[in-house]
């Protein structure tokens, strides 16, 4: 990364929020709100952030926050947009916020519709790779081989992590991107780029979880960066489903090396199983590389 985007000054969250110490999802929200600015309404669906905000009658937000039922972030976003527009408030930004569970799973249909209709909203998915708010059960964002409360038995449990950025890119939306709470400048830049566009924008933010992934609270940024290095969460963006740009290409590390930082998170895997995971990660990276080369050409 060349020159770093500057991080806006204004804090749009109050202290005292209920996140675990070292929560990267809290950091992600803080950074995204800074980039969005105060003229924003946030539609928040069930998940960690529904709790982090604080119980009624408290809140940690300085911008309007609408808590909603599970899986409704995108549909609430559509409702907000329509309501604001009909009242002549087209300038107000709408931010739909959901975790990986809310986005990849229970809210997927609403998300797809909002994207298909190219609603002028920004959807941010914060991904801690499991249903963390209910104790850490597997979601379709969980990597194969990872131990969760519902995948305690040995084996990969078959399922690959859904490639959500590609799913969103396939809707030909103006902007689909991956970002990381370990790269705050890149995240802020992407939110600002998204904010300047009309239509549906999607950002997939990787937010490691000290409680769920069982690592010491201070290691979040480092682990987030290692995930990018391991190409488990490469940083790239896609415009209109066609133009691929890789935002960062650091020195790669193996998936196995990445998981060294979270020992108890990975189940004991055979060499074949580990190789399968590595191959999967490599394939996805190669696809992105090939498409980015096409874009350059």
């Amino acid at each position: 990364m060349q020159e770093l985007t500057s991080i806006p000054e204004q804090e749009l969250l109050y202290q005292g929020m209920y996140s675990c110490p070292g929560c990267m999802a809290a950091l992600a929200m803080r950074l995204v709100l800074k980039a969005m600015g105060p003229n924003t309404i946030l539609a928040l669906t069930t998940g960690c952030w529904a709790v982090i905000d604080g119980p009624f009658p408290y809140t940690s937000s300085k911008v309007p926050f609408l808590h909603g039922a599970f899986g409704t972030a995108a549909s609430m976003g559509r409702g907000l947009r329509a309501s604001l527009d009909v009242q002549g408030k087209e300038d107000v930004q709408v931010l739909a916020w959901g975790g990986d569970g809310a986005t990849f799973d229970i809210g997927m249909t609403a998300l797809s519709a909002a994207a298909a209709y190219n609603e002028d909203i920004l959807y941010v998915c914060y991904d801690n790779e499991a249903y963390m708010n209910t104790g850490g059960q597997k979601s379709t964002a969980t990597l194969p081989g990872v131990r969760t409360t519902t995948t305690t038995q040995a084996g990969l449990a078959g399922v690959r992590k859904k490639n959500i950025v590609e799913i969103m890119a396939a809707h030909d939306i103006p902007f689909a991107a991956s970002a990381s709470a370990g790269y705050p400048h890149d995240l802020v830049k992407k939110v600002q780029q998204a904010k300047a566009l009309k239509g549906f924008k999607f950002i997939h933010v990787h937010t490691p979880c000290p409680t769920g992934w069982r690592y010491p609270p201070d290691e979040g940024p480092r682990i987030a960066r290692l995930a990018v290095q391991a190409r488990i969460h490469p940083l790239y963006h896609v415009r209109h489903g066609q133009q691929y740009v890789i935002d960062l290409d650091p020195e790669p590390i193996s998936v196995e090396e990445y998981f060294q930082t979270q020992r108890s998170r990975l189940k004991p895997l055979s060499a074949e199983e580990m190789a399968w995971i590595q191959e999967n990660v490599d394939q996805r990276w190669q696809t992105i590389v090939a498409r980015s080369r096409n874009t350059e050409a």
Binding site: Q15, G16, M17, G54, F56, P57, Y58, T59, S60
Partner: peptide, 15 residues
């Protein structure tokens, strides 16, 4: 409040 609208910030939660 007649509906669940927040009345205070979380600053009373001394984390």
């Amino acid at each position: 409040p007649f509906k669940s609208v927040a009345m205070a910030s979380t600053r009373s939660n001394l984390t």
